[in-house]
Write a protein that binds this DNA or RNA. Structure first.
Length: 483
RNA sequence: GUGACUAUCGUUCAAUGGUAGGACAAUGGUUUGUGGUACCAUGAAUCAGGGUUCGAUUCCCUGUAGUCACCCCA
C-alpha cells in the first residue's frame, strides 16, 4: 500500500564485476561501485515519476473486486468492451474536450513524435471512443451502441491522495439515442456499480446545462449578476469571476454561498427541448430508488457536454464529499468531430478514488483463491520428481504452493503452515525411489504414504471431505494447547 | 501552476553536530526427514546534490518525492 517516499539513486554498472554479481542486495552494489569507479557507469533514478505509482500485489485484491464488478455490470447492461490507444492526436482532445478547459490548457501530456506528429496521452476516454466510433462506422450498428472501456488516463496535475497523474478510469458510453430514459439508465448503471463495490453514502448530483448556446447565455447572465455584486464576493471569487465564473457557484465561503443563492440558475436558461428533457429525466429518476439531488451549481470541466450532467459523490462522516466520477450527455460531439450527428451519453468512474473510498469505509477486497496444498521436497531426486507432481496437481486444478528453493523440511513446513494449507505432500529421497509420496493432513497432523499415480486422487479426496466440513480452520497452535 | 509541511532498514517508530537503535516482517538455526510458541543468529536505512563545520543523518540552500490548501478534477 505504501509507496516509496523518496528518491533512491543507484549506480548501475554496465559490466558487473564478479564481486558485484555475487552481491544480491542492490545497496551493496552501490557501495562496491563507489569503491570501484573505473567501471563505466550510468546513473538511474529508481523512482516512479511524480504522480505515478506501482499498484503492488497487496493492493490487487481491491482492484480485482473493482474489475469484477465492472465486468459484471458491463455484461448485465449489454455493453461491449472497447480498448482504444493511450495516445491520440492532440487535436482530438483540444477539439472535443475544448481549449479553454483546464484539462486541455494545463493538464495534458502533450509531445511531438519522432515523425513530427503532435500527440497527447489521453486525459479522458470519451474523445478516443468517439473517434473510434466514427472511424469504424459504428453509426450503422443497431442503436444504442454501448461501449465499455477501462484503463489509465493521464493528467499533468499536482498529485495528492487519490489524485495521480496516471490514474484509472472505467468508462461507459451509449451512442445513438437521445431519449432521456438513457440518461436515467446511465445513472442507474453508475449506481449499480458503486453499490456492488460496497460503497455507502453515495449521492448523485444532477443538472442540465442545455445546449452550447443556452450555456453561453446563462454564463453571460451569471457574470452580469456577479459583477454587480462583486463587493460581496470573497477575494478568490473575484479572481474566479474573470477566469471561470461558473466556479463561483462552488465556493465554500459563506458570503459567496449566500450571494449565489440569489444568482440566476442555469435551469432558467434552458431551451424548451432541454427543459423537457430534464423534466423527463427527473421523472425517470424518481421511478428508480436513487439517491440524487438537483445541483444547479454543477458544471463539468469538459466542453462537449450538453443537457444532462451528473457527478457521483461519496461523503464521509465529517461531511466531506469526494467526487468518484461523473458524466453526461454529449449530443454534439460526434458531429463536431466529423461524424454524422449522433446523440450520446456516458460516464467515467475514477477507480483510484473508488478504491480509496473502499478502504476508507473498510469494504472487503476480493479474496484471491488460496492454495490448499503444499508440496515439500527433500534431496535432489525428490526435487526432480516434485516438478512433475506439481504439474500433475495443477492440471487437476489443484492450487498448490511450493518452496522449491528451500532446503530443510522444517522450513518448508513452516511456510506451509504460514500459508494455511490443508495438505502437505512430502517427497524425500526414499519416496522418490519408491515412487510414493507422503500425504500429510495439516489439520490433524496425521499422514499416510500413497503411490505417486494415486496421489492426485488421494489429495482430491481429502480436500473434498474438508470442504464438506465447512470453512477450513488453518492449523494454529495456540499457547492454550500447551497449557 | 502557487503556497505550506514532511522525508531514517521492506514496514513502523526512536536518537544524535562525533562510528543510527528497537519492534514487526524476512532468512537461517535450536540432534542435518516434520509445522505453533519460545530462544539464538543474520542481512537491511539517514532521499539526492551542494554549503557551513575539525566533523552533518542532524544546521543552511537547491533538487526530487509525498501530504495538505489553492487551482482544478477523477
Amino acid at each position: 500500500m505504501t509507496q516509496k517516499k523518496s528518491a533512491k539513486k543507484v549506480e548501475v554498472k554496465k559490466e558487473k564485476s564478479p564481486a558485484a554479481k555475487k552481491s544480491v542486495a542492490k545497496k551493496s552494489v552501490v557501495k562496491k561501485n563507489l569503491s570501484a569507479p573505473e567501471v563505466s557507469q550510468e546513473e538511474i533514478l529508481l523512482q516512479a515519476l511524480r504522480g505515478m505509482r506501482d499498484i503492488l500485489p497487496d493492493e490487487q485484491p481491491y482492484w480485482e473486486r473493482v474489475r469484477r464488478a465492472l465486468s459484471h455490470a458491463q455484461q448485465e447492461y449489454g455493453f461491449q468492451r472497447i480498448d482504444t490507444p493511450l495516445v491520440e492526436f492532440a487535436h482530438l482532445f483540444t477539439r472535443s474536450v475544448g481549449t479553454g478547459t483546464d484539462i486541455v490548457d494545463k493538464e495534458m501530456y502533450i509531445f511531438n513524435t519522432r515523425g513530427g506528429d503532435r500527440v497527447a496521452l489521453r486525459p479522458e476516454f470519451t474523445a478516443g471512443i468517439a473517434r473510434a466510433f466514427i472511424q469504424h462506422g459504428m453509426s450503422v450498428l443497431s442503436k444504442p451502441v454501448k461501449l465499455f472501456s477501462m484503463g489509465p488516463v493521464y493528467r499533468y496535475d499536482r498529485p495528492q491522495e487519490g489524485r495521480y497523474r496516471e490514474f484509472y478510469q472505467a468508462n461507459f458510453d451509449m451512442f445513438g439515442e437521445s431519449d432521456p430514459i438513457l440518461d436515467a439508465q446511465t445513472i442507474q448503471l453508475a449506481y449499480r456499480v458503486v453499490q456492488q463495490l460496497g460503497l455507502k453514502n453515495i449521492e448523485f448530483q444532477v443538472n442540465s446545462i442545455g445546449t452550447a448556446e443556452s450555456r453561453k447565455e446563462y454564463s453571460k447572465a451569471l457574470v452580469r449578476f456577479l459583477e454587480s455584486q462583486k463587493h460581496k464576493l470573497c477575494q478568490n471569487c473575484r479572481e474566479r469571476l474573470a477566469t471561470n465564473p461558473m466556479r463561483v457557484l462552488d465556493c465554500k465561503e459563506d458570503k459567496c454561498i449566500q450571494l449565489t443563492a440569489q444568482a440566476p440558475q442555469s435551469l432558467d436558461y434552458l431551451d424548451q427541448e432541454s427543459r423537457e428533457h430534464f423534466k423527463r429525466l427527473l421523472e425517470y429518476l424518481d421511478e428508480l430508488d436513487l439517491p440524487y439531488a438537483i445541483n444547479t451549481r454543477l458544471v463539468r470541466g469538459l466542453d462537449y457536454y450538453t443537457k444532462t450532467v451528473f457527478e457521483i459523490w461519496s461523503g464521509d462522516q465529517e461531511g466531506k464529499k469526494y467526487s468518484l466520477g461523473g458524466g453526461g450527455r454529449y449530443d454534439g460531439l460526434i458531429e463536431s468531430l466529423g461524424g454524422e450527428a449522433t446523440p450520446a451519453i456516458g460516464f467515467g468512474l475514477g477507480l483510484d478514488r473508488v478504491i480509496l473510498e473502499m478502504k476508507r469505509t473498510q469494504v472487503k477486497p476480493y479474496e484471491l483463491p488460496k492454495p490448499r496444498v503444499f508440496l515439500a521436497q527433500l534431496g535432489d531426486m525428490a526435487k526432480k520428481k516434485s516438478l512433475r507432481i506439481f504439474s500433475d496437481l495443477e492440471k487437476s486444478s489443484i492450487l498448490v504452493a511450493e518452496s522449491f528453493g528451500r532446503g530443510s523440511l522444517k522450513s518448508q513446513l513452516r511456510v506451509a503452515n504460514r500459508l494455511g494449507v490443508e495438505i502437505t505432500i512430502i517427497i524425500g529421497q526414499k519416496e522418490a525411489l519408491d515412487e510414493t509420496a507422503i500425504v500429510k493432513d495439516m489439520i490433524s497432523g496425521t499422514q499416510e504414504t500413497v503411490t505417486q499415480p494415486k496421489l492426485v486422487d488421494a489429495v482430491k479426496k481429502i480436500l473434498k471431505s474438508n470442504a464438506a466440513l465447512g470453512p477450513v480452520m488453518p492449523i494454529v497452535h495456540t499457547d492454550d494447547d500447551e497449557e
